[in-house]
Amino acid sequence: MTTTTPRIDKPRGKRRGGVMSSTGLYIATSVAAVLFLIPFYLLIRNSLSTDQEITGSDWQFFPTDIQWSNITEPFDDPTVDFARAMWNSMVVGTLHTVGVLLVCSLAGYGLARIPYKHANKIFYAVLVTLMVPAAVTFVPSFVLVSSLGWVDTYRGLIIPGLFSGFTCFLFRQYFLGFPKELEEAARVDGLGYWGAYWRVVVPNSLNFFAAIATITFINGWNAFLWPLVIGQDPSAWTVQVALSSYMTNQTVNYHLIFMATAISILPLLFVFLFLQRWLVQGIAQTGIKG
């Protein structure tokens, strides 16, 4: 894509707004940015405050003495096994991501690249599932999973979510655009479809895989409805279900709840900081093209 033309436009026509309008632009953007950051600030502020400072009548924007000891409190809480919930989320999020990438990328490649007479019909069977949002079918899915005896297990939390028609569709679209010559070269050299896929296609698609992996991990970590339905026993709770249970507890321990929430967001903030480039790229590419 050679988009050299806008450059001619930029210094003269478009950018002649002058100091005033550019200042206005930055003021508007900064105000919006502050509004977007306030919830993060409140979360950090409250998680490092005493309950008095959170609920006191003279509410201060900046707390006076910071309680660093709050950091370990969620892990010592006898009512909710927060450490267990974090571990469950780690396991579920990771395995979910690995599984989705493996299963959906293979299927996407098969549908995009391997000629087979019924491939079109099968592709339509995949597309039809996009019409039915997964969340709407949670009742029948739960019925199925419970009759398999998978309630309160990692299997029940992970496996039903692996077969995402949408992710498969995204991979198919991506592989349709993958340069054919590379694979042909590999096959001339004697690799079958399988070998060409693992040695040529995947190593050359790592950016795309990283983008899908980031989005999938975030969705897996943040999922609530399915873990709520499957995790009936507290030992199978993911961190989101644990957070939700704090809100309905009889005794409300404010600083602990906010600290637990802050800790639950941390892994994703790391993912964001390190993988934002792929994430943004991935959303721009896959969200919709055009």
């Binding site: 940015a33 977007f36 979360l43 409250n46 943040n222 609530f224 989101q240 409300v252 967001i265 964001f272």
Partner: peptide, 22 residues
């Protein structure tokens, strides 16, 4: 990045901040 950051937060965590703080 600032505007994009909330995408990392779960609906549960946001509900908690909204309900208990804001």
């Amino acid at each position: 990045s600032v505007f994009f950051l909330p995408t990392a937060v779960s609906y549960v965590a946001a509900s908690l901040i909204w309900k208990m703080s804001i």
